[in-house]
């Protein structure tokens, strides 16, 4: 049976990662920025799984669970922060969050 070569997965993950980076840099909605960061994390997961399959190891697949758990913890904190900001400002546009001069 012919299987998909690892390099295809890695190329796909690189595309996803780049999309995530572009999303963080170009979008202005805090929620969308956050989703783009999740996309970046998941592209890393894809690399872990692809190489774990190539090496025939379980370790790489277990790492994905670690990353997913941490991402979930980040979601909990991140959404709480975004909700607090939204309550105060009625907006989660990062351009409106500009009290501190960068």
């Amino acid at each position: 049976m012919q299987s998909v070569p690892t390099v295809y997965y890695v190329a796909l993950s690189a595309i996803l990662f780049t999309l995530g980076v572009l999303g963080v840099l170009l979008r202005r909605n805090a929620l969308i920025i956050f989703m783009s960061i999740e996309l970046m994390l998941n592209s890393a997961n894809l690399v872990f799984v692809a190489f774990a399959r190539e090496f025939g190891q379980q370790a790489g697949q277990v790492f994905v669970f670690f990353v997913m758990t941490v991402a979930a913890a980040e979601v909990a904190v991140g959404l709480a922060l975004i909700v607090t900001i939204f309550r105060a400002k009625r907006s989660i546009n990062v351009d409106d969050i500009n009290q501190l001069k960068g």
Binding site: S13, F17, L41, S43, A44, V47, F51
Partner: peptide, 14 residues
């Protein structure tokens, strides 16, 4: 930045 770190770790693993 954590996402960069994880992707970097994944590539080193690969």
């Amino acid at each position: 930045s954590s996402a960069f770190l994880v992707y970097g770790i994944a590539l080193v693993y690969g």
